[in-house]
Amino acid sequence: MNIDKEYELPFPVSEVFTAWVSSETAIPPASRMNIEPVPGGCYELFIDGPDGGASNRGRFHLVQPNDRLVYTWEWNGDGEVTVIDVTFQSDGPQTRLRLSHRGFLSKDRAKMHDAGWDSYIQGLTDHIRRQR
């Protein structure tokens, strides 16, 4: 199962890319992040809660600043390692973002992540607005 999405964000590519790879961009429900945007570097997202928490861990395979990112994604050590491929394209003062998330083992997992991406992009947009 795969997810393919496209978004228009009202910010230049450099702002969108920088926010995407910043450890400071913890979009709820994430409480903190650890991002090292270099090939082989980590991508870690943490959700802290009263019952413990959850985490995502992955590794960057490709980092082309202001252009493209490819990294893995494994939710809470569940063994299902998927691949995220994001391209950032300038569209005047906006960014056209194309996202591919591949390798889900079930439709339910893909559906959950599909909705999660829409929520994340809204949170990313709000975060960038607050940073301006």
Rank of each mutant, 00 (worst) to 15 (best):
E44L: 03
L62C: 10
G116N: 00
L9P: 09
P29K: 09
R129A: 15
N2Q: 15
G49F: 09
R129T: 14
I3S: 03
D118W: 01
E80W: 04
Q131W: 05
H127M: 14
I27V: 08
E80Q: 00
R57H: 08
G123V: 10
G77C: 10
D85Y: 07
G123I: 12
P29R: 11
F46C: 08
N2K: 15
W75V: 10
F17Q: 03
D67H: 14
Q89A: 15
F88S: 00
A110T: 05
H113C: 14
N2M: 13
S55L: 13
I27E: 01
R130H: 02
G77D: 09
I121Q: 02
P39V: 04
G123F: 11
T18W: 08
Y7W: 09
L105M: 03
F60H: 03
A54L: 14
V83C: 05
Q131E: 13
V16N: 00
Y71A: 02
D78V: 01
S22F: 06
R57S: 11
T125P: 10
A26D: 09
S119V: 07
H127Q: 15
F46M: 13
P37W: 00
I121E: 03
K111Q: 11
W117V: 14
D91N: 14
L124W: 04
P93F: 13
T125Y: 14
D51G: 12
G52F: 14
F11P: 03
F46T: 07
R98D: 02
F60Q: 04
V83R: 06
G49E: 11
T95Y: 02
T82L: 07
Q89T: 14
R32P: 02
N76G: 10
L97H: 08
E8W: 09
F17G: 04
R57F: 11
A54S: 15
G92D: 04
P29W: 12
S23P: 06
D108C: 08
P50S: 08
A19W: 04
I121W: 06
A110K: 06
G49T: 01
G92Y: 05
N2F: 15
I84P: 02
M1Y: 12
L9C: 11
S22L: 05
P39E: 10
E24D: 05
L124G: 07
G92F: 02
D114K: 01
H61D: 04
V13C: 06
P28R: 09
P39C: 01
V70P: 08
D108S: 13
G77E: 09
W20A: 06
E74M: 01
E74T: 04
I121T: 04
K107F: 12
P65S: 07
Y7V: 05
E8S: 11
E80D: 08
L97A: 03
A19I: 05
